[in-house]
């Protein structure tokens, strides 16, 4: 890693700003798959119109600017710039150097192709090397075991289980909190004594 390393450039994807013209139609389509919203939040899942997504984007950028506690990046195909998903560093507490992270790949057809992994790697490097944070948290639901496995692949440790905190489809599920400390992340960058962090 050098001082002019392109922090937002991966091999398959890049992290980009919101495109207020083109993105709302794509994200509106994603929101009609409620399973994605359920995986991301405990709020009531509901589809959003294009107009509603536009308003949401404005609110996000306002919060980014005013709160100084949020980064919101879109995930795009490196070559074609197509919108694939988004990643957020939220709830940053600068005093303690902590934050939580959310990542979504919108279209089920785009999952399992390494886009999410690359986006997470870029985001973690940004969190630890650019923002100088000390730890990153992620909260997932027991009914989404793929997400637990995904974060564990990157050395996240399961820390808390809030028992039966989610009620869906007449069933209860635990809310699972995972955490990754800077040292633990650093260890994944030095596999085999070689610094993979270029």
């Amino acid at each position: 890693m050098s001082i002019d390393t392109q922090l937002f450039e991966g091999k398959l994807i890049r992290l980009s700003p919101i495109d207020h013209e083109k993105d709302p139609a794509v994200e509106s389509r994603w929101t009609h798959d409620l399973s994605l919203q359920r995986a991301l939040s405990r709020r009531v899942a509901m589809p959003l119109s294009i107009a509603q997504v536009k308003k949401k984007y404005e609110a996000i950028e306002k919060e980014v600017e005013e709160s100084h506690r949020l980064f919101h990046f879109t995930i795009r195909g490196r070559e074609d710039g197509r919108l694939i998903g988004f990643v957020r560093i939220e709830g940053i507490e600068w005093t303690h150097g902590v934050c939580s992270l959310k990542l979504a790949i919108g279209d089920p057809a785009d999952r399992g192709k390494g886009y999410g992994s690359e986006a997470l790697q870029l985001t973690l490097r940004f969190a630890f090397r650019e923002l100088n944070l000390y730890r990153v948290s992620a909260v997932v639901t027991e009914d989404n075991p793929e997400a637990v496995t995904f974060f564990q692949k990157f050395n996240f440790v399961e820390e808390v289980r809030r028992r039966k905190a989610i009620l869906r489809d007449g069933q209860t599920w635990d809310s699972i909190h995972l955490g990754l400390l800077r040292d633990e992340w650093q260890a994944t960058q030095m596999i085999g004594g070689v610094d993979h962090e270029q």
């Binding site: 303690h96 948290s137 399961e158 820390e159 808390v160 289980r161 909190h177 955490g179």
Partner: peptide, 8 residues
Amino acid sequence: EGRIREVL
């Protein structure tokens, strides 16, 4: 129910 490590 668990501990969030080194958060403060």
